[in-house]
Amino acid sequence: MYLTEQSKISRLADARNLRLCWTEARPVVQGIFALRFCCGALLAEHHTNGAVWPRVATVLACWVAATWAIYLLNGVADVVEDRENGSIRPIARGLLPVDHAKSVVVALSAAAIGIAALISPAVCLLVVMHLGIGIAYSTGPWPLKGNVPGFLGAVVALGGLTYLSGWYASGATEIGVPLLLFGGAMSLWMAFGGATKDLSDTTGDRLAGRRTLPVVLGDRAARVVMAIGASAVGWGFLLAALRWAPSLTPVGFVVCAGSFVLTVVVSSKVSLGERFRRRRPYRAFMITQYAAHLTLLVSLLK
């Protein structure tokens, strides 16, 4: 009886820790990666049939596992700066043991690679590259997150690989202009818009030795660069869609509008002050991402 109760308590603790691992990996980020993958698959310009979609779902499962591992590892690596910045994520608050999180990272990575290897060598290579860049982003003697070029390169690569994996999973044989345009623009949006997260984390980043835009340029200059970058992506995407991929025009308007909102928010007093206010540009970036991908999905599924 005692052993049964102990086993039950242990299972409940494991379930709780697994849930905390998912929370640590930021469900809102996991969701947008899944949407990127699905958009890549649907933009493949390939006539799919019922036999293809089980493959897409299986590759997506591998991709979700790998992305979960990447962002959980990021939480482990960022514990010092997260605590300094007042993060409410489980590891920073001491709710999730670091050793348990590391073991889940290993298990997720092994599962993603193992299942991918059973699908095809190409899928396995894509998953390994995704994990490799994600690991290099957070760990090692010179993590890519620690400097602006490393951050920009890693983020664009993670986005591009996700769209590419969705395309490949669909069984497509050609990469069309819509996929190149949408995948490229939204990967750049990840880089310039995603950098706004650093505006609320300057204290911890400086303590950890990270050379982010706000640390290197100062808060005001970093905001100017972020506004210019986001605007360039938004307007560039819209104009390119009008010229080369009219079917993406509605999405282009969404991203362009989002870039305008982000520019206004990051350049005004509404994003100054305490941490919640300083994260408003990042929320504008994330909302724009979701709106753009959902707009595309609705148009493709009509």
Rank of each mutant, 00 (worst) to 15 (best):
P246E: 11
P178V: 12
A77M: 15
L238Y: 09
A51V: 15
E174L: 15
F237S: 03
G218M: 06
V270I: 15
L217N: 08
R11E: 11
A110R: 13
P54R: 11
R83A: 03
T202Y: 04
A291S: 13
Y163S: 03
A257Y: 05
V148Q: 07
Y71I: 05
H130N: 14
V264H: 03
T203Y: 07
I91K: 01
R243E: 06
V177Q: 13
A154M: 08
V224Y: 02
A241T: 10
T4M: 13
V261W: 11
Q6I: 12
G184C: 01
D198P: 01
S187Y: 07
G134E: 03
G204V: 07
L72Q: 06
W167G: 08
L95H: 08
L262Q: 07
Y2H: 13
S259F: 09
I133K: 05
G258K: 08
A69W: 06
E274M: 08
A172R: 12
L301V: 14
I115W: 01
R283E: 00
D205C: 10
G171S: 13
W63C: 12
G153F: 08
R26T: 12
I91Q: 05
S109Q: 01
T23F: 06
G176Q: 13
V254R: 07
L3S: 12
R277Q: 03
L131S: 05
R16S: 13
H293R: 00
I88N: 10
H46S: 12
A221Y: 00
A222I: 02
W53P: 03
K8I: 13
R243Y: 11
L43R: 05
I133S: 09
A92T: 07
L188Y: 05
T23I: 14
A112D: 06
S268G: 11
S109M: 07
V255Y: 10
Y290F: 15
R280Q: 08
W63N: 10
A44F: 12
I133P: 06
D82H: 15
A291H: 05
I287T: 09
E81K: 15
Y282K: 04
A65Y: 08
T173V: 15
L96P: 04
R277P: 02
A66T: 11
A117S: 15
G273W: 11
R89E: 00
A241F: 08
V106H: 12
T4C: 07
V104G: 04
F260T: 05
R26D: 02
C62I: 10
L73N: 10
V215C: 00
K269T: 15
S187D: 08
K145Q: 01
E5H: 07
G194C: 03
A157E: 03
I113Q: 11
K269E: 14
D78M: 12
T288Y: 03
V104E: 02
N147W: 13
E45L: 14
A57D: 00
G236Y: 00
E45I: 11
T196F: 02
G236S: 04
P143F: 02
I287N: 03
G171C: 14
F37K: 00
P141N: 10
R277M: 04
A241S: 15
L248C: 09
G75D: 04
E274S: 11
R280F: 10
L73H: 09
F33K: 03
N147A: 13
D201L: 07
V64K: 09
V264E: 04
Y71S: 00
